[in-house]
Each structure stands twice: as structure tokens, then as C-alpha cells.
Computed example of a mutant assay.
Amino acid sequence: MEVTRLLEKAKAGFNTVNVGATYKESAMVSLETWLTKLEFQKYQPQIEHMIESGYWDYLLDCFYQVIPFGTGGRRGEVGIGPNRINPWTIQASAQGHSQYLIKQYGEEAKKRGIVLAYDVRQFFTNKYFNDALDNPVRNLNCKDLALAAATVYSANGIKVFLFNSFRTTPELSFAIRYLKAVSGDMFSASHNPPEHNGKKIYDEFGGQLIAPFDEQLVNEVTQNVVNINTISID
């Protein structure tokens, strides 16, 4: 079976990387998931290319963990795998955030909604990808990430207010208060390197979450997301 061959090749390749066995084992578990699950089908051609090309250090870094979700949100390098910013990691964040909002506000979360804003950041490609193959992160921009998140909030019954063009963080903060929304997302890499992207989360007052709500949100995103609900918003 092709997947078995690819996994065996990846395992042998990871064994050439000078890191602890725990990192390699974790990467193998994630790699198998992304190579076999239907929800990751659009990522698989590039994963197969990277395995065949022997990019072991890069692949291991992409797959050994889920990109951390901190009190401000989730930001990092754009790419393929759970340790990169891509539509899947953004949607996983939005699912956990949806669950948190519904726990905190109940039906009010759905009625009052969330505001999504985005800036101009765009990722193009990198040396590890094969540009002749399909690639869901090629030319990925902040609006793409906002739309990916919107499909999740909407699927969870939360009203979405999405700006129709680029906006700044202060404009998002104002809009949250003006619309009386329960929260907001700013899709931006801010001062991070050019290959990065992500989002920050704001509360109903237009500021970042403070204790104990910040920790509750982090726990919801990192511990309680089992399934990601999505809906078409075309």
C-alpha cells in the first residue's frame, strides 16, 4: 500500500534527525493522520512530495506537535501540518473558540456574533513545496483564513460579521463594541516574519482576554476540540 510505503520511508528518514524519540513518534502519528484522513486530502500531494524528497528536518518540525495556542491567539509559519498555520489549524482554533463562546454566553453568543477582520499578509510558497502540485497554502492570505474561520463559527450557529476589505486592529475593536458582538478575530501576522500568519482573539470590550478567561479559552481550544464543524458560506 502506498501510504504504508510513505510512512516507512518517513520513519527511516526521521531516524536520521538528531532529536528525541518522543518528537519522532509524535510526528509519525500526525503524519499518518494527515496521509489517511479524508479531511486532509487536499494537503496530501505536497506531503507525499516532501517525503519523497527527503525533507526530514522540515517535515518533522511540521508534524511533531499542534501549533501552540496562546492567550492572544495562534500565530506561526504558514505551511502544511499541525505545527503550521493553514486552513485546518485556523478552523481548529475557531471550533474551540466557538465552544468557549457558547459556554460563556449561551444563546447570546449566537445572536450577538463575532467580528472578523484581516490585513494584507499573504504567503506564496517555499522551497519545500512542488509548485506543479495542488497546494492549499499557496498564495494563502489573511482573508482566506478569515473565510475558513467563518465557516466554523457559522456552522456552530454564531453570527459572523466579516469586513469586506482590509482593516486595522483598532477598527476591529471599535466594530466589536459598536455591533455589541461577543468577540472578534484579527487575522494578521503583525510584526512576525513574512512567512508567518495567524490570528489574535479579542473579547466583547475590544481588548485581549484577561485571566481567568484567557486560560479557559486556551484549555477549550487545546483540550476539548474533537470535531470541527464547517458549513459552506458561498
Rank of each mutant, 00 (worst) to 15 (best):
T4W: 08
Y105F: 15
E32D: 11
E48K: 14
I228L: 00
N156G: 03
E8N: 12
G79K: 11
E48W: 00
V226T: 15
G184W: 06
V152Y: 08
K199R: 12
K11Q: 14
R121D: 11
I176D: 02
G54D: 04
G113K: 00
I80Q: 06
T36R: 12
D119S: 05
P170D: 09
E108L: 14
Y118W: 13
A211D: 13
S53G: 04
E107W: 10
N83G: 02
M1D: 15
T89E: 12
T125M: 13
K110T: 01
F174P: 04
R112W: 02
R177G: 02
N197L: 08
F161A: 05
A27G: 04
A155I: 05
P193R: 07
E77L: 13
E195R: 07
I67K: 14
T36Q: 02
V66C: 07
S93D: 08
G13A: 09
T36E: 08
F174E: 11
Y153H: 12
S53F: 01
Q216A: 11
F124T: 15
L145S: 06
K9Y: 06
A189D: 14
K110C: 10
D131H: 14
L7F: 04
V218Q: 12
H196V: 02
N192H: 05
L116S: 09
D119P: 02
V66G: 12
A211M: 10
N83M: 05
S53P: 01
T33M: 13
F14E: 05
H97Y: 14
E8I: 07
F187T: 01
T33Y: 10
K143P: 01
D61Y: 00
Q41K: 15
P194A: 06
A109V: 10
N227Q: 13
K37H: 01
Y202A: 03
K127L: 04
L6I: 02
Y58S: 01
V115F: 12
F69Q: 09
S154T: 13
N192Q: 01
T169I: 15
V160I: 09
V182E: 06
S26L: 14
R177Q: 14
S188W: 07
G157W: 11
G198R: 05
V19E: 06
Y43T: 09
D134M: 10
P68D: 15
I114T: 12
V29G: 10
H191W: 03
P45T: 06
F123C: 09
F14M: 04
L133W: 01
S53T: 05
A155C: 04
N141D: 15
I47M: 01
N219Y: 03
E204L: 09
G184K: 06
L38Q: 15
P45A: 08
H196W: 15
V221I: 08
I47C: 03
Y178R: 15
S232G: 08
S154Y: 11
L179G: 11
G20N: 00
Q46R: 06
F174H: 14
E171W: 01
T36A: 03
D57K: 08
K24I: 09
V115E: 10
